[in-house]
Computed example of a mutant assay.
Amino acid sequence: MPRNDPRQYDDLAAEWWHPAGRFALLHWLAAARAALIPPAGAPGRVLVDAGCGGGLLAPHVRDKGYRHIGVDLRRSGLRQAAPRGVTAVNGDVTALPLAARSADVVVAGEILEHVTDLPATVAELCRVLRPGGLVVLDTVNDTGLSRLITVTLAERFGIAPRGLHDPALFVSPVRLVAEFARCGVTLTVRGVRPSLRGLFRWLVLRQAVDGPRIRPTFSTAVLYQGTGRHAG
């Protein structure tokens, strides 16, 4: 199977909600994304979760008052997202099957490093976002250090399944900021990293980890978050 083949997620479907499983780090990142999303503030507000996978964001935004729409290419993930309060929509993030300006918040968590057409994906995320709406994302930087950590070492030590990432698709903050700017969104980025204690408990002790597990850091060289508002 080639690198970045989305069929891998069908094979890994049982891992989505395993608290100390292969996707534990994705749970941590989902919680960190949710911390950047404010409460809806009014009924009827919509959150679009692009590339939602098994719906890991759901428990972290359940009490914020949004209608949570999850779009994903793989039905195996959507089947797990739906029982957790996600309105599941089968679709591609490069052509979201949603109306323009239909979302108050658009979330793209750990998906941008997997897309083969970044400009089309960013354009779609911005197309469905209402004027003044919020975009929240995280992804992997296009650096030698990120390739070493997230591919070479992560695959060797079981942090990431083999072949999950294609480093040729990793995206730098400079490029991502420019793509969003073309679509009317001023993106602000910051580096993040997993806590060392959390990594030890997960990788060495194979334990589920509670509490804050993703921390801001000065460097965007490996992982980074981004937020921005659509100027309309």
Rank of each mutant, 00 (worst) to 15 (best):
F180Q: 10
A35P: 04
A14M: 05
L148N: 02
W28N: 02
V209I: 04
R33E: 13
H27W: 10
E124T: 10
R215D: 07
F200I: 05
A181E: 15
V107W: 11
V189K: 06
A178G: 09
G51S: 15
F180Y: 09
G44K: 11
A40L: 09
L47G: 04
L145W: 11
T217F: 05
T87P: 07
P119G: 13
G144M: 12
L164M: 14
A120N: 07
A58C: 06
P83K: 10
A108T: 05
T116Q: 10
R62T: 12
C183W: 06
Q80A: 05
E124S: 09
R7Y: 12
R213K: 10
G211E: 11
R22V: 14
D72W: 07
V105A: 08
T152P: 04
D49S: 14
F170N: 08
T87Y: 00
M1P: 14
F170L: 03
L203S: 03
E179Q: 11
S76R: 11
V177S: 08
I149S: 05
T217S: 13
Q8M: 10
R7C: 08
R197H: 09
L96T: 05
V140D: 03
R175T: 14
H114V: 05
V135E: 01
A168N: 11
I159S: 00
R79E: 15
A95S: 11
L164K: 01
G198S: 09
V174C: 13
W16V: 07
G228K: 07
T121I: 03
T116C: 10
D142L: 05
L98E: 07
S76F: 02
R193P: 06
G133P: 07
G184P: 04
P2N: 11
A160F: 00
G109W: 00
T186V: 06
R101T: 11
A35Q: 10
A32N: 12
V128R: 00
D49I: 08
A32L: 04
A30W: 00
N90H: 15
D5E: 14
